[in-house]
Simulated assay, not measured.
Amino acid sequence: MKKQFNRMRQLANQTVEKRLELVKQVSHSTHKKLTACLQGQQGLDADKRSVRLWQGSEAAGRAAALGQKMLRLCGEAEDKLAQELIHFELQVERDVIEPLFVLAEVEIPNIQKQRKHLAKLVLDMDSSRTRTSSQLTCTILWPKK
């Protein structure tokens, strides 16, 4: 009976390890794909992104100086869209990409490490329980005189 229990426990541990590894791979690949989808560079603040993303609005600003109202309005609309895109990307980084990275690179390895440590402690507990039980049996069967 104990052998069957140990086999089932070992099978359950292997299943959990496989699932943890799968979650780690999925979160890591999702992090990579989301990072690749961003148009700006990851980790930059909004001001630096706006300079890198929409340098075309500079040309629209020069045209506005010439008095072309339509180009000025288009430049302003483009600038507003750029700012919205920048804020959206920053929010996606903060709310989705960073937690996925932490999950894949920090939390799952910690869980795996703790599981291995727990398995070792359970083995130690089982062996000491067996030793204690055998010593009690020996004491009961052959009492000291």
Score class of each variant (00 low, 15 high):
79 D>Y: 02
10 Q>T: 15
67 G>P: 07
99 P>N: 14
76 E>G: 03
60 A>Y: 05
38 L>S: 14
85 L>H: 01
3 K>I: 12
143 P>T: 03
68 Q>N: 06
87 H>F: 12
33 K>T: 12
70 M>R: 03
50 S>G: 08
21 E>K: 08
66 L>R: 01
134 S>Y: 13
85 L>W: 02
72 R>C: 08
89 E>A: 01
122 V>Q: 06
34 L>S: 03
78 E>K: 05
142 W>N: 12
119 A>F: 07
145 K>V: 14
3 K>M: 10
116 K>G: 03
66 L>I: 06
136 L>S: 09
13 N>S: 15
76 E>Q: 15
103 L>I: 09
66 L>P: 00
58 E>K: 11
56 G>W: 06
137 T>K: 13
88 F>T: 15
51 V>D: 07
98 E>Y: 08
46 A>C: 05
142 W>R: 15
99 P>I: 10
25 Q>F: 08
116 K>L: 11
51 V>P: 02
132 T>G: 12
132 T>F: 01
116 K>Y: 13
144 K>D: 02
122 V>F: 06
123 L>V: 01
65 A>C: 12
120 K>F: 08
134 S>D: 09
24 K>L: 00
34 L>N: 06
121 L>Y: 05
90 L>H: 14
64 A>E: 10
107 E>G: 01
45 D>G: 05
16 V>L: 13
130 T>D: 12
18 K>Y: 14
